[in-house]
Design a protein around this nucleic acid. Sequence first.
DNA 1: TAGGCCATCTGGTCCT
DNA 2: AGGACCAGATGGCCTA
Length: 246
Amino acid sequence: MDSDTGSTCSRSSSPDLVVDSSFFSSKMFQQAEKNSDRSLSPGGKIRNRPDLSKADLQELRLKVNSRERKRMHDLNQAMDGLREVMPYAQGPSVRKLSKISTLLLARNYILMLSSSLEEMKKLVGEVYGSNVAQTHAHAPRPVLAPAQLPLHPLAQSLHSLAAGTAAVSSAPLQHTSTHPATAQTPHSPPAAGYLGFHAPPFPSLLKDPLQLAGSYRHFPGMPCPCSLCQPLPASTASLHGLSMSK
DNA sequence: TAGGCCATCTGGTCCT
DNA sequence: AGGACCAGATGGCCTA
């Protein structure tokens, strides 16, 4: 059951709840009674307090409920904070990620970043190694194009992740996906399966990462990974398989 | 109307 | 003892 305040908050996960006497509406007490009837099991910290009067028991129960509400609100706030840093379009017209989707997406995001970091380390090591060899050989060496530098795989993967997320959640990114397989109606939340770990997340993207180049979101502070801006080096192709199969 | 998602209440358990 | 955390139950809202 929703509290009166909860039902007016447009499904916000973190409603600003002001607990006052009116908050405990008859509806809430009806629910409380039901729950009490249902859970008449022996035990229960509050129920087993013969030393307290009925009024005290009720006050204690309200206090505990309030704490629990606050705890859940804090949890939801943290969840909102997590949503904010996810590569996912946000805005008033965009339905926010569900909790489960947020967690799954976050996990994949972390995995992708970790993988990209490893790849960056490798490439940096290779570059330094080559430079050392080159210095000794006095031979001219082609300079890596920016598109081939280590950040590329990270950004490329971000595009896949973001585009896929948008596809399954229908949250419009800055570019609009036109891929028929990923088109969904607005306001449909992402299915957990798409963000899960047992199947390639976005098969169409894995098949042809270049196809959706124009539908990607560009992230501030990151090199644009879309194929319109950069070619896809073979070394990063494996990243598209990085996902949920763990 | 069914199903998904969510907020809330509640009792139980664990920790300080 | 009190608080945090957890899981089950319930009902509301929303979308397909």
